[in-house]
């Protein structure tokens, strides 16, 4: 598995994401936001957390239009795997690769703690969890309140595309949605940080199955 992790100005979880993909056995390459192509042989693209472009205008709005995102869109269009975490999820929504949007937390405050999550979806990124499993991952965000119109919510629900739901009140997200996938399951966006839980020294390794599942899915392909 070759994983390309994008760095935007203001990304701050890109190194952690590279470590997580490497822990799952990936060859990891770093991609700069001004690159207009992905390295040859890229299997999975990581869009990391942070504050790309200072969160100017809206979280992820400027990054969604960075040169590299044309290549990421094309990769997803070919059925390539893409993982967006936190700001990366916001970027994928702004780029139109995932439906809906992420707005200010209902309680206004920045939320930074470990939260309970239920695995509620299917797809290649989630194959390492039994559906219905409750896990715990860190969240750290100000704008993680997921909103979408009713039609989109019904489609996400009906197609098993709500990857994770919060098991507690976190940010006001509709339906407690913490992460969603694309129609083909190969694009996953999520607010919690699995890359911050890939080693027991992190206080838990319950995020590692996402990176491992990507490796398994790609080995099969």
């Amino acid at each position: 598995m070759k994983a390309a992790v994008v760095t935007f100005p203001g990304s701050n979880c890109d190194r952690d994401m590279r470590v997580a993909f490497a822990a799952a056995g990936a060859e990891v390459v770093q991609v700069w936001h001004k690159d207009d192509a992905l390295p040859a042989g890229t299997d999975v693209v990581g869009v990391p957390g942070g504050f790309s472009y200072g969160d100017y205008l809206r979280c992820g709005a400027i990054a969604a239009n960075a040169p590299v995102m044309g290549a990421v869109r094309a990769h997803a269009g070919r059925g390539g795997m893409v993982l967006g975490i936190c700001n990366g999820f916001q970027v994928l929504c702004e780029a139109g690769l995932l439906p809906g949007a992420l707005v200010r937390n209902a309680g206004i405050a920045f939320v930074c703690r470990r939260v309970a999550l239920d695995v509620t979806g299917d797809g290649p990124f989630l194959a390492g969890y039994a559906r219905g499993t409750r896990i715990e991952l860190p969240v750290a965000h100000h704008d993680g309140n997921y909103v979408a119109d009713d039609e989109t919510l019904r489609a996400l629900d009906g197609e098993g595309r709500v990857a994770f739901r919060y098991g507690e009140a976190v940010n006001g997200s509709l339906g407690g949605i913490a992460g969603i996938t694309s129609a083909n399951g190969r694009v996953l966006g999520m607010m919690p940080h699995p890359e911050r839980a890939v080693d027991t020294v992190h206080g838990g390794a319950e995020g590692l199955p996402i990176f491992r599942a990507a490796a398994v899915a790609l080995a099969r392909a």
Partner: peptide
């Protein structure tokens, strides 16, 4: 394209 996110 950029200034507004018409989803929200």
């Amino acid at each position: 394209r950029l200034l507004a996110n018409t989803v929200i």
